[in-house]
Amino acid sequence: MVMSHDDVFETVGRPLLSDGRIKISCRNVNVYYGNKHAIKDVSVDIAEKEVTAFIGPSGCGKSTFLRCINRMNDTIKDCRFEGNITIDGENIYDKNMDPVLLRARIGMVFQKPNPFPKSIYKNVAYGPSIHGLARNKSELDEIVITSLERAGLFNEVKDQLDHPGTSLSGGQQQRLCIARAISVHPEIILMDEPCSALDPIATAKIEELIDELRQNYTIIIVTHSMQQAARVSQRTAFFHLGSLVEVDDTNTIFVNPEHKLTQDYITGRYG
């Protein structure tokens, strides 16, 4: 299959939601890195308190799109954004929208576990203390402990809160990063291939955690692994060469994809 980079696909499936569960809605999003057209006219709705998975071959723009949602692309030079993204109806690219405030509402977990070279306690306390969420030490303690508990890490580290975060195992580090992300009580958590650096057991734990977190948070997860998408997500979006090819309930995508490309990708014919 030969395709030029300028092909834009019409999104098939159910990109837009009609019920009242819309948390994030993206309309006609285009992103350019210098001359490169990285995201091409993507429109999609993300449902509240649900896990949405972004899948697709590498370089398809799914991470770039994810980083649009908390405006992390702002920090990258010659990255240009066009279009419209709203959270609870609020345009996040509005002039009055503060990126700091936005990011306090949206947690992010990265591909490689990136705990700060500080103690476990300080890693989790970092967010609350920069935002001034705790009035005193005991409030901060409480936030740290709840966050660690929610990330399913507290029991493993409760005796070594003053040890450096980097001393933990890979899976523990990633859960520490999740604890750090939820310490400021975000509404949305973005996960950029959170398990790609982990072994299967650690991956299983994280997936379990994601399933639990969905009770309280809207989660978007970018993943390479279709199995993972199938296991943890309720909705799945398939990206290809910067276009959003197909979005639908995970079951539909995996059992009965509409687009030929999606089908080829799911069945492992390329990717």
Binding site: N70, M72, T75, V100, L101, L102, R103, A104, G107, M108, F110, K112, N114, P115, F116, P117, K118, Y126, G127, I130, H131, C177, R180, A181, S183, V184
Partner: peptide, 27 residues
Amino acid sequence: VPQSLRDGSMGIGATKSETVVKVVLPA
């Protein structure tokens, strides 16, 4: 200092100076 640390700090809503002073410089 790895970029991922800066990303981690910015991603949680820190300003640039907070990232520099509290994460990059200690590292």
